[in-house]
Amino acid sequence: MENLIRRYGRGLTGIFVLLVGFWLLMLVILPNFAMFEQSFRPYLPVTEIGGPRDVYSLNNYAKFFDAPVEWSLFGITLMVPVHVLSFLQTIFYSALCTVIALILSYPLAFYLAKIASPQSLPTLLLLLFIPLWVSEALRAFAWYVILTFNGPLNQLLMWLGLIDQAIRWQQGVLTNFDAIVIVMVYCYVLFMLLPIYTSIQSLDTNQIEAAEDLGAPWWRTHLRVVIPHAKPGIASGCVMVFMLSAGSLLVPTVVGSTRANWFPQTIYTWFNDSQDWQTGAAYSMIFLLLCIVFVILMLRLFRVSLSDIAK
């Protein structure tokens, strides 16, 4: 704060603080608090709001555990509430998206930061950024077109003679979530690449050379020198890709198979089909809370602290 005042003077600093305060309070805290408050109230006809039945309860949260369905996991059939199942699948496949995005991004980030020549770097970054110029809705829809039954992918493969019958890619070849995972990785991979790129860039190249001079094989150099240094970037990239994937409504709605239900779609159903905003709010709260818990657990597991990411 003192730095800020010294640099910009009292007036400008005051405006900054007010604007940030307004943004935090009016656009983040109050709306979330309103949802939190609504989530404990029952869904009632307009005329009964504020009436005797409008009392706080945990009923909306209890709905999360209603409606068990069969779920077979490794050959064992379990009864799991349908929304819990959607939640678990959403978390699992979001984590999968995160891992795939990491595997794709790390080598590329290392190449950009340490190997690519400085002259070609702007061109390479530009090429990576071009997809971001198109809105996410259009990118998802483009993938929908590619993956459809009568789409260009099937036509190309059939023309090449690799397949003789069109494949329903959208329904999934390996799992019911194939299409969602492909498109999410495509949409969010840059959110992984850029933080890793920045953090590898700040690594002194001498350290890599020193490791090589001392006879470390290439994989040990990465394991012992590059990755520990890039850890905050990797962690923030993972958190971003995970939260963006788990919270995406657009991608699963556009490309999802008929057997995949993403948790935000469940929330959307409560708000839009059932018109039950209160239960929708409760589900949003559950989702927010459990995702935060999951992320914190993962950060613990990989021994990254939040302050590392903030740097």
């Binding site: 869904y43 209603d66 409606a67 369905v69 349908v82 929304h83 199942l85 959607s86 008929t258 057997r259 239900n261 469940t266 159903t269 409560w270 089909d273 059932s274 018109q275 039950d276 239960t279």
Partner: peptide, 13 residues
Amino acid sequence: IAKRSEYADKYKA
């Protein structure tokens, strides 16, 4: 309608 959405979710999943 709330119950109907629950059935629809089961059917979808």
